[in-house]
Amino acid sequence: MIDPNPETPRGEDRLVGSDRVLVVLRVLAERPEGIGLEEMAKAVDSPKPTVHRALAALRRAGFAVQDGRGRYLLGDEFLRLAFTHHEARPDHVRIRPALERLAGRFGETAHYAVLDGREVVYRAKVDPPSGPVRLTSTVGGRNPAHSTGVGKLLLAWTLPDDAAVATWARQGPLERRTPRTKVAAEELCAELAAVREQGCAVDDQENEEGVNCVAVPVFLTSATTPSGAVSVSALAYRTPLSSLVEALPEIHAIVKELR
């Protein structure tokens, strides 16, 4: 169940109401098939009249619509704003040519991601021009930083030494996404030290079984601090990790042309 009022004092009714509208909007985004009023009220743990008012406010703004079955969905106006904002983002616009080249060159998916706390957020994605099987990752989607190539690469810059890595690892549990995920502080220290030395990171089926990747830094706003990371993510049966590692000089060269 979603907390309808995260970190909100009980007495601040206007703030509580605003938070509730945002939580309702988030639930709509998570239910592309639509959601009924009663189900929404349970999801946000609020009375139906209160949730109905939140949905009415979203409908007036064009951020929600109601279909013929009475179920609520995200409205076209919200999607228009979201996609317009995404398409206008400088990092997305600048990175896309490199992602297209990488996806075409390797016949696999290329991502651009940034670090957000203990997770990575995918800002851009380009699928290969052909191929019957594609990755399920989405723009705006998140994954744990410690289990992904892009995450480990960006953590290596953010956490400069073993002490910083150990402190970070103790701040919360690290999910073991697959049997290969490194969750011990000692393992992460060794892994991130190797990333700093080599200037790249790998994901050997650590985030998702059957999927591996290599990641390199992107310096869009600074010559010394990455603005994000680019990865080539591949189905292991189709493109083994060893092939991606061998191609790292070429991947680096394509990404460096963005400077």
Score class of each variant (00 low, 15 high):
92 H>P: 04
134 R>K: 09
102 L>E: 05
114 V>E: 15
101 R>F: 06
113 A>F: 04
93 V>T: 10
101 R>S: 10
110 A>W: 09
107 G>C: 04
148 T>Y: 09
131 G>T: 02
146 H>D: 11
155 L>Q: 13
93 V>K: 07
99 L>G: 03
123 R>A: 03
127 D>V: 09
110 A>V: 13
129 P>L: 11
113 A>I: 03
154 L>D: 14
119 E>R: 14
117 G>W: 13
165 V>E: 11
153 L>D: 08
161 D>G: 05
98 A>V: 13
139 V>F: 11
88 A>T: 01
148 T>Q: 06
126 V>I: 15
108 E>L: 01
150 V>Y: 00
159 L>T: 06
106 F>S: 05
128 P>G: 01
115 L>Q: 09
110 A>Y: 06
136 T>Y: 04
107 G>Q: 03
157 W>C: 12
98 A>I: 05
102 L>G: 07
107 G>A: 01
137 S>M: 13
148 T>G: 13
135 L>Q: 04
90 P>W: 14
110 A>I: 08
164 A>M: 14
88 A>M: 05
102 L>R: 08
128 P>D: 02
140 G>W: 06
125 K>R: 14
159 L>R: 10
153 L>K: 01
116 D>T: 08
114 V>W: 05
159 L>F: 12
110 A>G: 03
125 K>N: 00
110 A>K: 07
98 A>K: 00
101 R>I: 04
88 A>G: 10
99 L>P: 08
126 V>H: 03
152 K>G: 07
115 L>V: 11
110 A>H: 05
140 G>I: 11
95 I>N: 02
141 G>H: 09
101 R>E: 14
87 E>N: 10
159 L>H: 12
97 P>Y: 00
122 Y>R: 03
152 K>E: 12
145 A>Y: 14
146 H>K: 12
137 S>Q: 02
146 H>L: 15
103 A>D: 01
95 I>P: 15
91 D>R: 04
156 A>H: 15
89 R>Q: 11
107 G>T: 04
125 K>M: 08
89 R>T: 14
105 R>K: 15
156 A>Q: 13
155 L>E: 10
95 I>G: 00
140 G>R: 04
146 H>T: 14
127 D>G: 11
149 G>F: 11
141 G>C: 00
129 P>I: 05
117 G>P: 13
